[in-house]
Measured scan of single mutants.
Amino acid sequence: QVALSRTQVCGILREELFQGDAFHQSDTHIFIIMGASGDLAKKKIYPTIWWLFRDGLLPENTFIVGYARSRLTVADIRKQSEPFFKATPEEKLKLEDFFARNSYVAGQYDDAASYQRLNSHMNALHLGSQANRLFYLALPPTVYEAVTKNIHESCMSQIGWNRIIVEKPFGRDLQSSDRLSNHISSLFREDQIYRIDHYLGKEMVQNLMVLRFANRIFGPIWNRDNIACVILTFKEPFGTEGRGGYFDEFGIIRDVMQNHLLQMLCLVAMEKPASTNSDDVRDEKVKVLKCISEVQANNVVLGQYVGNPDGEGEATKGYLDDPTVPRGSTTATFAAVVLYVENERWDGVPFILRCGKALNERKAEVRLQFHDVAGDIFHQQCKRNELVIRVQPNEAVYTKMMTKKPGMFFNPEESELDLTYGNRYKNVKLPDAYERLILDVFCGSQMHFVRSDELREAWRIFTPLLHQIELEKPKPIPYIYGSRGPTEADELMKRVGFQYEGTYKWVNPHKL
């Protein structure tokens, strides 16, 4: 086992960053958080920038500027975001240094004079007029057009580079997404736009490419001749908990499936790229999406959770019991969808996408189930092999396979070949997804960000279904809070070829 401390991990990262040409360590950078008073800024962006600063992973002359409508001070920003920093008493001095680099400007999102004030403020910072500028839009999409237009007109660096990070949702359907994309691309070049999907920053999602293309053993079996089906799962054990009003506007397909799960599907299904260059990788992902037809209604199961009468606390409440959810809402909190990649490698292999709230566990994984062994000599005792990439929690890679049961006879039983990170790298604290992705933006690497043509294809696949749901308002199937979801989803999976045995229990190697 390799035991690495946080300091050692960050030392390795620093070495990698400083050796590259793309990370300008000594240049002045300004990180501007648009929507600095909001939840995302408070819980994710400010803490992430602090962790990067604490670990010495930001360029040395980096300033952080918050911008929002609320009249706040840096002290206010500190008060609301610091509880999420997880700072230790030993880091007190470092924390003071961090907040000394912070400033805040209040202004409207659609007022040109406010942006001119913001620009004057940035120019007044040390070497601010020639600094590289990175704008993070932690804002609702309704203000994107006004904000990007004003940034472009008043706040661009004339000497350094300018980059803009856009948070999902990128529209509600193909038409609104196209409108937003066309607007942003009329102001910024594609190499300046970073559409963030934080799932692409997760260690195991990034590991998929290495697993596939750096190991000879997987190449020959990664196709329709050997793989019976692919299941991509995202499960949350909690409901909307008072935030249903926002969720109800989008629903589970827009929230998770059309982005996170579809991105994971691309990494499983794509061909080997010409290189690890950002556009070479994204070219292959677009090719996969172009091979997927629009979702067919007979390959869809929609569910909505109801309270568990035997549960406790939140578990007793259904989705419609959330006071922020519109009365009688038919918005799905669970969806199972089957897609097919219609190309030579994957023809006929079902890709089953499942996601839901208020389920029995927290889990995100990719599961490849292989065909049955031909010419069975073990009297149907063999179960199908599976390769599982567990994204969260407890990152893991393992192969479910058959071995001989101890004893006199040739009785096979299920076991696993474990390729888990935790076994080799004991207690290594890896940077989280937002840390990686923000560092990628500083480096100018777009590999783990969504390109406009990729986004367009993703919406093309799901828009007809979303429009049909909005028009017909089908009643989702009720499922109990804390269950596996509607049984109809299991029946759909069985119908397209997935075999669920229920006889195997994964042993978490992190707890051995």
Rank of each mutant, 00 (worst) to 15 (best):
I253T: 10
I253R: 01
I253M: 13
I253W: 01
R254D: 06
R254M: 05
R254S: 09
D255R: 04
Q258F: 02
H260C: 01
H260E: 01
H260R: 04
L261A: 09
L262P: 04
Q263R: 00
M264N: 01
M264V: 08
L265Y: 04
C266R: 00
C266H: 03
C266K: 03
A269I: 06
A269L: 06
A269P: 04
M270Q: 06
M270Y: 03
K272R: 12
K272G: 07
P273M: 05
P273G: 00
S275E: 05
S275A: 06
N277D: 15
N277R: 13
N277T: 12
N277Y: 13
D279G: 09
D280V: 13
D280E: 13
V281I: 12
V281Q: 04
D283L: 04
D283R: 01
E284Q: 10
E284I: 07
E284W: 04
K287A: 10
L289M: 10
C291S: 15
I292E: 07
I292F: 07
S293W: 06
E294G: 12
E294M: 10
Q296G: 12
A297I: 13
A297D: 14
N299W: 08
V300C: 14
V300A: 14
V301A: 12
V301Q: 07
L302K: 04
L302C: 08
Q304M: 05
Y305D: 02
V306C: 13
V306Q: 13
P309H: 12
D310V: 13
D310W: 11
D310K: 13
G311Y: 10
E312G: 14
E312S: 12
E312D: 15
E312P: 09
E312Y: 12
E312Q: 12
E312W: 11
E314H: 11
A315E: 14
A315F: 14
T316K: 13
K317F: 12
G318V: 00
Y319C: 02
L320A: 12
L320Q: 09
D322S: 05
P323D: 13
P323R: 14
V325D: 02
P326Y: 06
G328L: 13
S329I: 00
S329N: 04
T330W: 09
T333H: 01
A335L: 01
V337I: 15
V338T: 15
L339I: 09
V341S: 03
E342Q: 15
E342W: 09
E342A: 14
N343S: 13
N343V: 05
E344I: 06
R345S: 12
G348N: 08
G348R: 10
V349G: 04
P350T: 01
P350I: 01
P350S: 00
P350Q: 02
I352S: 00
L353T: 03
L353M: 09
R354G: 03
R354A: 01
C355N: 05
L359V: 10
R362I: 07
K363H: 03
A364H: 04
V366A: 07
V366R: 03
R367F: 04
L368S: 01
Q369M: 06
Q369V: 08
Q369L: 01
F370W: 07
H371F: 07
H371W: 08
D372C: 07
D372V: 03
G375N: 13
G375F: 08
D376I: 06
D376R: 06
I377F: 11
I377H: 07
I377S: 09
F378A: 05
F378T: 06
H379R: 10
H379W: 09
Q380T: 13
Q380A: 15
K383N: 13
K383W: 10
K383E: 15
R384G: 06
R384V: 05
N385S: 04
N385W: 03
E386N: 04
E386S: 05
L387P: 01
L387I: 06
V388E: 03
I389H: 04
R390F: 04
V391G: 04
Q392S: 09
Q392A: 08
Q392T: 10
P393L: 03
P393M: 04
P393E: 07
N394V: 05
N394E: 14
N394Y: 12
E395R: 05
E395G: 10
V397L: 09
V397M: 11
K400C: 01
K400S: 00
M401C: 11
M402F: 10
T403F: 14
T403V: 11
T403A: 11
K404R: 00
K404G: 02
K404S: 00
P406C: 14
M408G: 07
F409R: 14
F409V: 15
F409G: 14
N411D: 13
N411A: 12
P412S: 11
E413G: 08
E414L: 12
S415Y: 03
L419H: 04
T420Y: 05
T420I: 07
G422A: 14
N423D: 14
N423C: 09
R424F: 04
Y425W: 08
Y425S: 06
Y425F: 14
N427A: 08
N427W: 08
D432V: 06
D432I: 07
A433N: 05
A433I: 02
A433K: 00
Y434R: 01
R436E: 01
L439S: 10
L439D: 02
D440E: 08
V441T: 14
F442K: 07
F442I: 12
C443T: 12
G444V: 00
S445P: 05
S445C: 11
M447V: 12
H448M: 07
H448Y: 08
H448P: 08
F449I: 04
V450R: 02
R451Q: 03
R451L: 02
S452A: 12
S452R: 11
R456G: 12
E457L: 09
A458F: 03
W459C: 03
T463I: 01
T463S: 09
P464I: 07
P464L: 08
L465Q: 07
L465I: 14
L465Y: 10
L465W: 13
H467G: 13
I469L: 13
E470K: 07
E470Y: 08
E472Q: 15
E472D: 13
K473Y: 11
K473S: 11
P474M: 12
K475N: 13
K475G: 11
P476H: 00
I477W: 10
I477H: 13
P478E: 12
P478T: 09
R484F: 03
R484H: 05
G485L: 06
P486M: 04
T487V: 15
E488I: 09
D490V: 07
L492N: 00
L492A: 06
R495W: 09
R495A: 12
V496C: 10
V496F: 11
F498Q: 07
F498H: 12
T503A: 07
T503P: 07
T503W: 07
W506Q: 04
W506D: 04
